[in-house]
Lab assay of single mutants.
Amino acid sequence: HYVEVNGKKIQATSAEEAEKIAKKFAKIYNATVLDLGNYYKVT
C-alpha cells in the first residue's frame, strides 16, 4: 500500500495507514483523495 502525492510515492504498512496519510496530505494541499484500489492518489 502506498500514497502518491505530487508524483512521489509514500509507502504505508496498511490500507488504513495509507488512507490516513492520503487524507492528511489532501487536507494540507486542499486536494482530493482518489482510492485506486491498491493505492491512494492525492490530486
Rank of each mutant, 00 (worst) to 15 (best):
K23M: 12
H1S: 08
Y2T: 05
L34D: 06
A22L: 04
L36Y: 14
Q11T: 12
T43Y: 12
K24L: 15
Y2H: 04
S14E: 01
F25Y: 13
K9Y: 11
A31L: 11
T13W: 10
K8W: 13
A18S: 04
I28P: 04
T32S: 10
T32K: 09
E17R: 07
Q11H: 15
A12I: 04
G37W: 05
F25Q: 04
Y40R: 00
E17G: 04
D35E: 09
A22F: 03
V3P: 01
N6M: 14
T13L: 12
G37S: 05
A12Q: 02
K9W: 13
E19N: 08
E17V: 08
L36G: 05
Q11C: 13
Y39G: 10
Y40G: 03
F25H: 04
K27D: 12
A31R: 02
K20P: 00
V3T: 02
I28D: 09
F25T: 02
G7P: 00
V3F: 03
A12V: 10
V33G: 01
K8H: 14
D35V: 14
V42D: 03
I21F: 05
K27N: 11
G37F: 06
V33I: 12
A26I: 07
I28Q: 11
I21H: 01
I10M: 06
A26S: 06
A18Q: 00
E17K: 05
N38C: 11
E16R: 12
Y39I: 09
K41A: 08
T32D: 09
K20E: 12
A22V: 04
N30W: 06
N38F: 11
K41H: 06
E16M: 11
E16S: 12
G7Q: 03
T13P: 09
N30S: 08
K23N: 12
A12H: 02
Y39Q: 02
H1D: 03
L34N: 06
A12E: 00
V3A: 05
Q11E: 11
S14D: 08
K24D: 12
K41P: 04
K23L: 13
Q11L: 14
T43R: 05
N30K: 10
F25P: 02
L34V: 13
V42R: 00
I28H: 11
V3E: 00
A26H: 05
A26F: 05
T32A: 09
I21L: 12
Q11S: 11
A15V: 09
V5F: 13
N30E: 06
E4A: 04
I28R: 11
N38P: 07
G37K: 05
E17M: 11
